[in-house]
Nucleic acid binder design. Structure first.
Length: 607
RNA sequence: GCGCCCGUAGCUCAGGGGAUAGAGCAUCGGUUUCCUAAACCGAGGGUCGCAGGUUCAAAUCCUGCCGGGCGUACCA
């Protein structure tokens, strides 16, 4: 049960007879911002009083008195200028926890009716190595997919690979001029990466000068000439591929699996999965007819040799075909929308793509609606850029210039190495203090390092507000103290340790849960926090913001720490209290594990 | 030029109409006869970029300004 929406419903009922727009006032029920004010607070009396031309405190008193407490709430208190402070009844909390313990899925019922979501995430360019910038789309998209599925929706995860662009022209050119036959035989995947980076460096000067002619001063005449020739050759290879050139097409078919293998290894490691990986190439056959259709319906029209969609008030049009006959990514995206609608009839389609593409999606969605897809929820789940700190102290977006990006594989390796080192350090510190240290096999240690290291990387990204940019920083990305996955994983481990030490089987607590006793503030606070899990998930999905889950887990872990430090479990004063506390522990473990799982982060039993 | 986003503690960032603005890191101090100290408790530190406005109530909404970023017809 989502406590907040439940309370809002109660207030909706209380306000219904008084005003015309009860929902507005019901929405003013919020979690209390200070524990002294109770668990929740209703802030509607003040504005209600204004409208009714009455005293705020009088309105609050009357509202409080008329509220259906439904066995859930203590008598509300009116405070300050007219806040209504709500406190959940302890016996009600206990009953809910008991229910939660016995229920599958922590008493979170699947939504009715479920919706069908297409989520488009990760979507890397296949020919180039993935770098930190790709992490966000991949991880945020995966988390949203997991969350929506858990809540009961149907999710189709589609990885819209960039498998048809200039980067393949680069590979074709690189293959034809620089290939190393031996390397190609022994490790084609690495050879693809090498060729990409090589050509990248080769054409970089020419591209930079095209962007900004002033950059020409950075290069010698000869270098620039060579670079321009290479760039022209790359473009010609791309054009030949797109025109159906047999040789290039055959090479493309050969390269694709090699390139994808590189990416797939990272997905496997990150435990990220897709239902489909239709790349851009998949949609190419549909583009001619699509543009004809846009022309026929008067949505697009020829302009300066290209075919463009104009929108009143917009300075520039959106091109769906370039003068040279090539189709644009808008065209491919439109084909994708049509294909998805015909195949899956989704209620919503989410695009987890960086903020810089905001305008593209605004225009794309506008055209799609004019084209007839006007009932589906099309949503750009935008996220901020990963920035790099320059030597002069300023920050700027990572450019895909050779050598300047942090490759994702290297980041993940580093994370795991650091986790292993951290573990060694911690173990040594514990031994020095004369503490017990879990005896772990080499293999187990490696497994822990993997889970902790990758968890750190994912959590560092997910706990930020999606829309903020952030400056990449190894230490921050791999941090393992404070509000991090490691903290959560450790809370889980300590929790499981109790069951191991006490030789208690949690299954018994679930099949026949005792009624918890919530007499201390620590136990009560933990109970409330546990019951707010559903609320946190709903909030996260409402804004498509995974950081609301991490914020919740952090609060939960803090509540658990307070409980852990103050309430002995195995040595509880009475058997009843022991059982009650074991139940709280088990629920906490389940919520942490589930919460992390929804973020794509794993747990271990010992560390 | 136009459009969108951002400016909150030393640093990194939450919060995006409600009570005394929060966290992590860093700094300083404390905690282990007790279930894993990768933990816990405490302290210092902020005119929420500036100026107006709306509101019973503004870090939050509106306008202007300053500073920064991104995007803006043939890369995706």
């Amino acid at each position: 049960m989502n406590l907040l929406t439940h309370l809002q419903r109660l207030f909706h009922g209380a306000v219904e007879g008084i005003v015309a727009d009860p929902a507005r006032y019901a929405a003013m029920v919020k979690p209390a911002q200070d524990a002294r004010f109770g668990d929740y607070q209703a802030n509607c009396a003040m504005s209600l009083a204004k409208q009714l031309r009455q005293k705020p405190r009088d309105v609050a008193e009357r509202l409080a008195a008329s509220l259906d407490l439904s066995g859930m709430l203590e008598k509300p208190e009116v405070a300050g200028p007219g806040f209504i402070n709500l406190r959940l009844r302890t016996d009600w909390l206990a009953a809910q926890l008991q229910r939660m313990a016995a229920a599958d899925r922590l008493a979170i019922e699947p939504v009715q009716p479920p919706r069908t979501y297409v989520i488009d995430y990760s979507s890397p360019n296949v020919a180039k190595p993935m770098h930190v910038g790709h992490l966000r789309s991949t991880i945020i998209g995966d988390a949203l997919a997991r969350l929506l599925r858990f809540l009961g929706h149907k999710v189709i995860a589609d990885n819209h690979l960039g498998d048809w662009g200039t980067q393949f022209g680069m590979l074709l050119y690189g293959y034809k001029h620089h290939r190393d036959e031996e390397a190609l035989r022994s490790d084609p995947v690495r050879e693809m990466v090498r060729l990409y980076l090589l050509v990248r460096r080769e054409i970089d000067p020419a591209e930079k000068v095209e962007e900004e002619p002033g950059n020409a001063k950075d290069y010698s005449e000869a270098d620039l000439t060579r670079s321009r020739e290479a760039l022209a050759a790359v473009r010609s290879e791309t054009a030949k591929l797109h025109a159906g050139d047999e040789e290039n097409l055959a090479l493309w078919r050969q390269f694709m699996p090699w390139c994808y293998a590189e990416i797939e290894a990272i997905y496997r490691r990150l435990d990220v999965h897709f239902d489909h990986t239709f790349g851009e190439s998949f949609y190419q056959p549909m583009l001619v007819g699509l543009v004809d259709d846009l022309l026929a319906r008067g949505i697009a029209r020829p302009s300066e040799g290209a075919i463009a969609v104009f929108v009143e008030g917009e300075e520039t049009p959106t091109l769906v075909r370039y003068r040279n006959g090539a189709y644009t990514y808008t065209t491919t995206d439109l084909a994708t929308i049509r294909y998805r609608m015909e195949q899956w009839h989704p209620d919503a389609s989410l695009y987890v793509v960086g903020t810089p593409q905001e305008m593209h999606f605004r225009r794309l969605f506008g055209i799609a609606r004019r084209w007839g897809y006007d009932t589906i929820e099309l949503e750009h789940i935008k996220f901020g850029s990963v920035l790099e700190r320059l030597p002069n102290g300023k920050t700027e977006m990572f450019r895909t210039r050779a050598g300047r990006v942090v490759e994702l594989g290297a980041l993940l390796d580093e994370a795991v190495v650091r986790a292993a080192q951290q573990y060694e350090q911690t173990r040594a510190d514990r031994l020095e203090r004369g503490e017990e240290v879990p005896q772990l096999s080499q293999q187990e240690e490696q497994q822990i390092a993997e889970v902790v290291g990758l968890g750190a990387v994912k959590y560092a990204d997910l706990c930020q507000n999606r829309t903020s940019d952030y400056v990449f920083d190894w230490d921050k990305m791999l941090a393992m103290d404070g509000n991090t996955a490691t903290y959560m994983q450790y809370a889980y481990v300590r929790n499981r340790g109790i069951f191991r030490r006490g030789n208690v089987d949690p299954a018994a607590l679930r099949s026949d849960p005792p009624r918890p006793i919530l007499d201390t503030p620590h136990e009560r606070a933990l109970a409330v926090q546990l019951l707010r899990f559903h609320e946190a998930l709903d909030a996260a999905v409402a804004d498509y913001k995974p950081n609301l889950i991490t914020a919740y887990l952090w609060d939960l872990s803090k509540a658990y720490s307070g409980f852990f430090d103050n309430c002995p479990v195995l040595k509880a004063p009475t058997p009843e209290l022991r059982q009650s506390r074991l139940l709280l522990c088990d629920l906490t473990a389940r919520v942490i594990q589930r919460g992390l799982d929804l973020l794509g982060i794993r747990t271990v039993e010992r560390m």
